[in-house]
Amino acid sequence: MQSYSTRLFLLAPATVWFAAMLVLPLIVVFVFSFGERAAAGGYVPALTLAQYANLPARFTAFKNTMTLAPLGTLAALIVAYPLAYFLAVRASPKWRTILLVMVIVPFWTSILIRTYAWIFILGGRGIPNLLDMIGIEGVRLINTPLAVLVGIIYGYLPLMVFPIYVSLEKLDKRLLEASADLGARPWRSFLQVTLPLSLPGMATGCMLVFILLMGEFLIPAMLGGGKVFFVGNALVDLFLQSRNWAYGSAVATTLVVVMLVTVTLYMRLMSRGANQRDDVGIF
């Protein structure tokens, strides 16, 4: 058993770090959101709700985020589910681990470089050029909502596959045998047994992807070309270009609150639904 002083020594650096680099900065953002913009940019202390009242000025960014983030999450779910099912149920055990690692590894490599690849593919010399050759002309892909959606699916697919895989892999195969013995066709077994039991994994995946998408900057910045911008792009603009810290802080605080509400709803849903808990290690 550790002594009290040992424990203090072990926890001190991490505690100081969390306090100075996480808790304090988040408090600063919260406090600044009630302030005013200095004439030359920056922040002047004040106690006003003016910044929050002004949120509709960035309505488009919020609207884009709140439409494309759920849409992107749904699209990623639709693409990910069959793959997760294949990995958990159909793939041979010999290949399963390596296939799974191959899904996860891209997630841990540079999202910047991977998104850049799609500028290449969707840009004028990529797919539109190939379509041109077979006679379909004038297709524009880059800088459209569709390009952003493709980027989202590509970037976040691994994060969606993994939790669904975990819930499918844990599934008791005897339930499927029982269902078949009772005369259910495979499709019916899938809809009435497999799908409901993989709901927790789907919910976890959707929540992870949705949360990260709400703070997304790179994908819309690179594939949306300034036409499709998210709250993240508005934040970069507010802090690095117009230096409106107070208003930017209000936008950031709103974003974090929306995220916290989402997570809380998810936790409620999960604890009510079942006592099943998916401990998701992303790696």
Partner: peptide
């Protein structure tokens, strides 16, 4: 917390 919020904060 998303990286962008950590960055700003």
């Amino acid at each position: 917390v998303p990286g962008i919020v950590i960055g700003i904060a």
